[in-house]
C-alpha cells in the first residue's frame, strides 16, 4: 500500500499542471523545429534539384558535389575566418570597453547606451550603412585619400597568406575584414554589457585582498578578474558563433557574394542555389552543414549546462 501511494504521488499537482502547459509547446517544437530539420535532412539526400520535387534517394551525392565546389569551399573558408576575426574583435573590444566603463566614470550610463545602441538596428540597416561607408569610391576613402591610402575594402579580391587548397586559395580574404568591422560595430555592445555585468559581479574584496598582497593592477586583471569572467566569455562566444556561422542579412545587404566569392557565406549560397537555381537538394545539404557547424559550438555548451544542473 505504502509503495503504491508513493508512486501515485510521483507527480504533484503543480507538476501535472506544468506538464499540461508544456505539452502544446513541446508538440509544436517537435513538429516545426525537429520535424523540419529531419525533413531538410531527408531532402538533402534526395535528387530534388529541379523545380519539380523528386524524392528519389541520391545518397551523399549533394554533399560530395558541394565539398568539391569552388563556391562552397570559398564559403567554408570565409565562414571560418569571419567567425574567428568577428568573435575575436567583439570579445577584445567588448572587454576593453567594459573595463574602462567599470572605472565608475562620469556619465557611465550615457556611454553604455551609446555602445549598446547599434544592437537596436537590424543587420540589414547596418549592412546598407557600411556598404556606403566602406565603398572604395565614396565613403571613408574620401577622407583616407588625404593620407594617400585608398583601401579597396570589400571589393579587394586578395587572399592574405594564401595557398592553393582544393579548388580555392586558402587564406584570410581581405574583403572579409570589412564585414568584420561592420558586424563587430554592431555586436560589441552586447559583449560590453555582458562583461560589465560580469565585472560588477566580482566582489571588491577580492581586488582589495590582492592589493593587500601586493599585486599590481595588471596582475589583478590577469590573475583574478579574467579567470572570473570565463563563463561570460563562454556565453559571448556561443552567442556570437551562432550569429557568425549563420550570417546572411548583413552580407546580403552589404556586399552580396562578392567578386570571386570573397565575401560569400553558406547562407547566401543556400538562398541563391535554392530559390534562384531551384537546386533544392543542394540548398538542403548546405543547411545541414550549417546546422552541424553551429552544433560544434552549441552541443558542448548544452552538455556542460546539463552536467552543471545535475
Amino acid at each position: 500500500m505504502g509503495t503504491k501511494q508513493k508512486k501515485r504521488k510521483k507527480f504533484s499537482k503543480d507538476q501535472w499542471l506544468a506538464i499540461g502547459f508544456l505539452t502544446p509547446s513541446i508538440v509544436l517544437i517537435i513538429i516545426f523545429v525537429y520535424g523540419f530539420i529531419s525533413w531538410t535532412g531527408y531532402v538533402s539526400l534526395s535528387n530534388w534539384n529541379t523545380i519539380v520535387p523528386d524524392f528519389s534517394f541520391a545518397g551523399l551525392k549533394n554533399y560530395l558535389f558541394l565539398f568539391s565546389d569552388f563556391r562552397f569551399q570559398s564559403d567554408l573558408r570565409n565562414m571560418l575566418f569571419f567567425t574567428i576575426l568577428f568573435i575575436g574583435a567583439v570579445i577584445l573590444l567588448g572587454l576593453c570597453l567594459a573595463i574602462l566603463l567599470d572605472k565608475k566614470i562620469k556619465g557611465e550610463s550615457f556611454f553604455r547606451n551609446i555602445f549598446l545602441f547599434p544592437m537596436a538596428l537590424s543587420f540589414v540597416v547596418t549592412g546598407v550603412v557600411w556598404q556606403w561607408l566602406l565603398n572604395p569610391s565614396t565613403g571613408v576613402n574620401n577622407f583616407l585619400k588625404t593620407f594617400g591610402i585608398e583601401p579597396l575594402w570589400y571589393t579587394d579580391t586578395n587572399i592574405l597568406a594564401g595557398f592553393q587548397w582544393g579548388q580555392i586559395e586558402f587564406g584570410v580574404p581581405v574583403a572579409i575584414i570589412s564585414i568584420v568591422i561592420a558586424s563587430a560595430w554592431q555586436m560589441t555592445g552586447f559583449a560590453l554589457a555582458m562583461y560589465l555585468a560580469g565585472l560588477r559581479g566580482i566582489p571588491e574584496e577580492l581586488r582589495e585582498a590582492a592589493r593587500m598582497d601586493g599585486a599590481s593592477e595588471l596582475q589583478i586583471y590577469r590573475k583574478i578578474i579574467l579567470p572570473q569572467l570565463r563563463p561570460i566569455t563562454a556565453s559571448v562566444v556561443i552567442m556570437m558563433a551562432h550569429i557568425s556561422l549563420k550570417i546572411f542579412d548583413l552580407i546580403y545587404a552589404m556586399t552580396g557574394p562578392g567578386a570571386n566569392f570573397v565575401t560569400d557565406v553558406p547562407g547566401l549560397y543556400m538562398f541563391e542555389t535554392t530559390f534562384r537555381g531551384n537546386y533544392y537538394a543542394h540548398g538542403a545539404a548546405i543547411a545541414i552543414v550549417m546546422l552541424l557547424a553551429v552544433a560544434i559550438f552549441i552541443v558542448p555548451y548544452l552538455w556542460n549546462n546539463r552536467r552543471a544542473d545535475s
Binding site: N49, T50, I51, F70, R71, T157, P257, A259, N260, F261, E272, T273, R276, G277, N278, Y279
Partner: peptide, 19 residues
C-alpha cells in the same frame, strides 16, 4: 536556359571576372 543553368553560369562568370 533553365534557372539552374543560369545560376551556375552566373557563378562561373563571377569567378572569371576576377581570375
Amino acid at each position: 536556359a533553365p534557372e539552374g543553368f543560369l545560376t551556375k553560369m552566373n557563378q562561373a562568370v563571377n569567378i572569371f571576372v576576377t581570375q
